[in-house]
Design a protein around this nucleic acid. Sequence first.
DNA 1: CTGAAAGCGCTAACAG
DNA 2: CTGTTAGCGCTTTCAG
Lengths: 348, 348
Amino acid sequence: MAKALRSGGVTIKDVAASIGLAHSTVSRALNDHPGIGEETKVLVRRAAANLNYVANSGARLMRSGTSRVVGLILPDIENDFYNSATRIMAEFCDAENFQLLLAVSEDDPEKECKQVLAFREARVAGLVIAATLNPKRETAQMLRQLPAVQFLRRHASIRSPSIRADDSRGLHIATDHLVSLGHKRIAFIGVHPQLSTGKDRLDGYRQSLAAAGIAEVPQYVRTGSSQPAFARETLIDLLALPAPPSAVVVASPRLVLGVLDVISQQNISVPDALSLVAYSDVEWFRTWRPAITAVALPTAAMATTAASLLFRTIRKPDENDIEFCAPFEPTLLVRSSTGPAPRGGASR
Amino acid sequence: MAKALRSGGVTIKDVAASIGLAHSTVSRALNDHPGIGEETKVLVRRAAANLNYVANSGARLMRSGTSRVVGLILPDIENDFYNSATRIMAEFCDAENFQLLLAVSEDDPEKECKQVLAFREARVAGLVIAATLNPKRETAQMLRQLPAVQFLRRHASIRSPSIRADDSRGLHIATDHLVSLGHKRIAFIGVHPQLSTGKDRLDGYRQSLAAAGIAEVPQYVRTGSSQPAFARETLIDLLALPAPPSAVVVASPRLVLGVLDVISQQNISVPDALSLVAYSDVEWFRTWRPAITAVALPTAAMATTAASLLFRTIRKPDENDIEFCAPFEPTLLVRSSTGPAPRGGASR
DNA sequence: CTGAAAGCGCTAACAG
DNA sequence: CTGTTAGCGCTTTCAG
C-alpha cells in the first residue's frame, strides 16, 4: 500500500492482488457487469475502497475513444446570460455524470481555435459554443468532426445546429415599444454586426423604425465591443449630439452596465430625459429605479434545450439530420425606464 | 486516410507511416525535442497537419500520470464574485496551456464529493475549491491527496491552504460605518454561520456592535441560504417588526438582490427609511440609485493569487510548508445608500 | 463465473 | 539523429 501510494496511484491490479483475483475480474466487478458473482462484486468494492482506489479516466478514454466530458466555450462568463446558462449546463452534466470543461474565448478567434483544439485533444464527447465573430476556418472544420451545438450566436461557417433566440424580433418589439410611446429619436447601442446577435438585433431595430416610417439617423446607430466601456463612451457621445436621442435600445446586458454608469454619473432622469430598453433581462433590472424595461430571453429553456440536444447528438451521432430548431421567442417586460417622448423638439 | 477517419482517430503511427518514419520520431518531433533534425520536424508537422492529426491527451496522461487540467469547484456561478474569479482563472489556465474543469456544487456536500472524485479520476493537476458548509470526511481526505487551494471560504477539515478575504474585518468596517452615522438598530442578513464566510462576517458585525456598546438584538440577526429568496423573506419580516431596523448589512451579493427586490416593491426610501451596506461589491452597485455603499473585495488579486499559488504547488509539490497567506483586505466604498439614522425613536 | 492476453496512443529508455 | 521496444491502466475478446 505504501508502495502504491508513492508510485502515484493504486491501480486495478493492486486491488486484484489484494484479494487474489485477476485484474480483469476487478474491472468487471467495478463496472457492474452481468455475470459476476454478487459476492465477488461486494468483495471487490470493499477492497477498492480500502485501498483508496480511484479509477483513471485517461486509461478508460484510451479504450472507449471518447471521454465523459463536454466542452463549453463562451465569450464572457461575467455576462449574466452566459453564467446562468453555465449553471444549467453544469447541472445537466452532473445529472448525466459528465464533466464540464469550460473555456472563455473573450471573443478572440485565435484563443477559440486553441480551445477547440484542446477540447478535441481531450476527446470531449461534444461541445456547446457561442462562437466569436469571425471563427478561423480551422475552427469551423474541427467543429464539424464532433457533436456540437451553437448557442445563442450562430455563424454561417459552422455547420453545427444552433439554439438561439429570435434576436431580430426581440429588438423589433423593443423598438416598437418606444415608437408606440411616441419616440422618434431612438438610438441603438449594440455589438459588432459581424456577430449574428449583432446583425439580427440591428436588423430588428431597423425593421421597426422602417415600419413606423422613421428615417434612420446614422449617428444614432452604434455598434462595437460588448464590454461596458464601449457603451459608456458611446452614450456620452450620443448625449453630446446637437439633437440627442430621447430613447435608447441597448442590445446586450453588459452594455447596459455602461449606459447606467453614464445615467448615474450625469444624473439623467429616466424616463423623462431618456427612455431605456435593455435586451436580455437580468435579475437586478427589476430592482433598479426606475425598474428597467427589458426584453427577456428564455435563458433556462434555451440552455436546457442546447444541453439535451447535445446529449442526444452524442448518443446518436448518426441522426445527422437534426430537425431545425425554431428560435426562442423573447418577451417584452414593460417596466418603468420607458416613458412617453418629450413634447418639445430638441431635448435639453 | 479514409480508414483512419472511420476507425476514429489519426494516430501518431499513421503520421509516421505516411512519411516512412518511426512513430517515436514523430512523437519527438511533435514535442519539439532537442536532437531531432529541423527538417524532420518540419516534415513531420506538415504530415500531421495533412492527416489532421489531433493528439490524444488521454494517452499522454497515462504516461505522465497527471493531466494539464485544473479543477474549479464553486457553489454558485451566478454570484458575481465567483464568475469574475472564474474569468481570471480561465485566463490563467489559457496562458499556462491548461484546461479548466468547472463544477458547480450548489452547496451540496454530496455533489461536491462526487465532483472531487470525478476530478481525481481525471487526474487533474490541482484544484481550486470554495467548499460547502459541511464537506464530507471523504472529500476532505481526497483533497489532501492533490494540490488544492481553498478559495474565499475555508473549512477546518480541509488542510489545503486558503486564499481569503478578511471577512470579519470587512463586516466590522461596514457596521462601523453605520454606527458612525448614528444607527443603533442595525440588522444583519448573512449566510449560514457554518460557512467560514458566514461566521467571520457575523463575528465582524458583532465586534463592531460590541465596540460601540450597542446590545445585540437577536431578531435583527438573520442567517440562512445565500440565495436571494432568503433575503427577500427576511427583510419583509424585519420590516414588519414592531421596532424595525434603521439599517441593514447584507453580507453577500446574491442576498443584496433579494433585499433590493423588497426595497423596490415596497418603495422604501433609501437611505432615509433604511440604510444599506453590501458586502462584496458588484459592478452595478454604483449605478443603482442611490448608489449602494459596499465593502469591496480585491477579487482580481484574490483570484490571481489563488491561481498562481495553485500552479506553484503543482510544480513543486514538495514545498508542503506553504507560507501562510494573509487574508486580503476589504475596502469600504461609501456611496449613497447609507445616511444618518433617523432622529425619532421608531421609524415609520 | 473467472483468468490470460492483447492492445488502445503515447513517451521514454535503450540501442544503433 | 533515428528506430525498437516496453509499458502506463484499463477493457475486452477468447479460453477455461
